[in-house]
């Protein structure tokens, strides 16, 4: 399963719920305001770190750039993808779940 999270973890519990319910072997792509969750200095970094062994984490580059975060340190292991990379992930995983 490819999960997308589009909310800042400081505003909503979306990322927290996704991390609770994403099964081992799935991927989480942070998009839109969800990219704030990718910041190494952010509060969500610890929770992401706890699941790094069994989930893959990605953040959408154009959304990071739009928010002035291109140069900001991200949580270790988060890979940056563009929209084509998003498409590749959606094709690679058998289903998509949007956490809204």
């Amino acid at each position: 399963m490819l999960h997308t999270v589009n909310k800042s973890p400081l505003e909503r519990n979306t990322l927290e719920s996704c991390l609770r319910l994403a099964a081992k072997g799935s991927a989480i792509l942070l998009i839109e305001d969800g990219v704030y969750g990718a910041l190494a200095a952010g509060q969500a970094a610890k929770e992401i770190g706890k699941r790094k062994a069994d989930l893959k984490f990605y953040a959408l580059g154009p959304d990071l750039a739009a928010r002035g975060l291109s140069e900001s340190p991200l949580v270790d292991g988060i890979e940056i993808v563009d929209y084509e990379g998003f498409v590749d992930l959606a094709a690679e995983y058998e289903a998509h779940q949007a956490w809204l």
Partner: peptide, 16 residues
């Protein structure tokens, strides 16, 4: 959560 996550992972289409 654990039981639910397994069922979720087995879906073909998820609509939220």
């Amino acid at each position: 959560s654990k039981e639910l996550s397994k069922i979720m992972a087995a879906q073909d289409v998820v609509i939220s």
